[in-house]
């Protein structure tokens, strides 16, 4: 049994495939690629897989971690798995036998948030009280770059709902959200601005969009 940590992206319309459906998406695509999952114990065995912090639908995700337990892993599996994924899903990197539990490793998440309505955007920029678990929030003229701590406890859903209410927007459609990366927090008072680093060393994806 071998644990492999994978990071993946969810783009385009695949962003509307719910988090709960992802284990089947990944285990079925792995089966199509000839990769065998270890099964969980118990009455209803299923492929052993652990996803990172929950991601609500409608959010573009560029670097999401998951741990998978496989019977065997070879570097070539990465490309074969990639080819068997449905449209919108893509693997960004992997690491064999990573240390630590996935939940504990997910220390932070970095988001890009665009408020479509100019008035609402200005209201957020000038007066939105970011919650205490947001450790960084900058605005670059189009996107708010937001870094949060403990993404397992503080997901983006509550934040977006609050923003929508604060900016008096009509709904989620008024906000575009990208989760750039979930991973280790770096930086701080001594080393500079807070950033979030991917959890795998062989990351080959792109966290800057297209």
């Amino acid at each position: 049994m071998l644990k492999v940590r994978i990071v993946f992206s969810k783009r385009g319309r695949a962003c509307f495939i719910p988090h709960i459906a992802l284990p089947a998406v990944f285990s079925r695509s792995a089966t199509r690629a000839g990769i065998r999952f270890v099964q969980t114990e118990g009455f209803s065995p299923r492929p052993k897989l652990s996803l990172g912090p929950e991601l609500p639908v409608g959010i573009v995700a560029l670097c999401e971690p998951m741990d998978v337990w496989l019977e065997e892993w070879r570097a070539s599996f990465f490309d074969s798995w990639q080819r068997k994924l449905p449209d919108g899903f893509s693997l960004g990197g992997w690491e064999e036998a990573p240390l630590g539990n996935l939940g504990n490793s997910c220390e932070g998440a970095e988001y890009l948030i665009r408020v479509r309505d100019g008035g609402a955007c200005e209201a957020v920029r000038s007066g939105y009280p970011w919650p205490e678990w947001v450790c960084r929030a900058d605005y670059d003229g189009e996107w708010f770059r937001v870094v949060t701590e403990r993404p397992g406890e503080h997901g983006p859903g509550a934040l977006i709902r609050d923003l929508v209410e604060f900016g008096k927007m009509s709904g989620w459609a008024g906000v575009n959200v990208v989760r750039r990366v979930v991973g280790r927090l770096s930086g701080g008072e001594l080393t500079g601005e807070k950033r979030v680093l991917p959890l795998v060393s062989l990351f080959s994806g792109d966290t800057n969009g297209n």
């Binding site: 385009g12 319309r13 509307f16 495939i17 719910p18």
Partner: peptide
């Protein structure tokens, strides 16, 4: 925006194998 405002948007997005 329509997907964002509907219940179970996964019904409309395809992304099938």
């Amino acid at each position: 925006p329509l997907f964002s405002e509907t219940r179970r948007p996964s019904r409309y997005v395809g992304c099938e194998w």
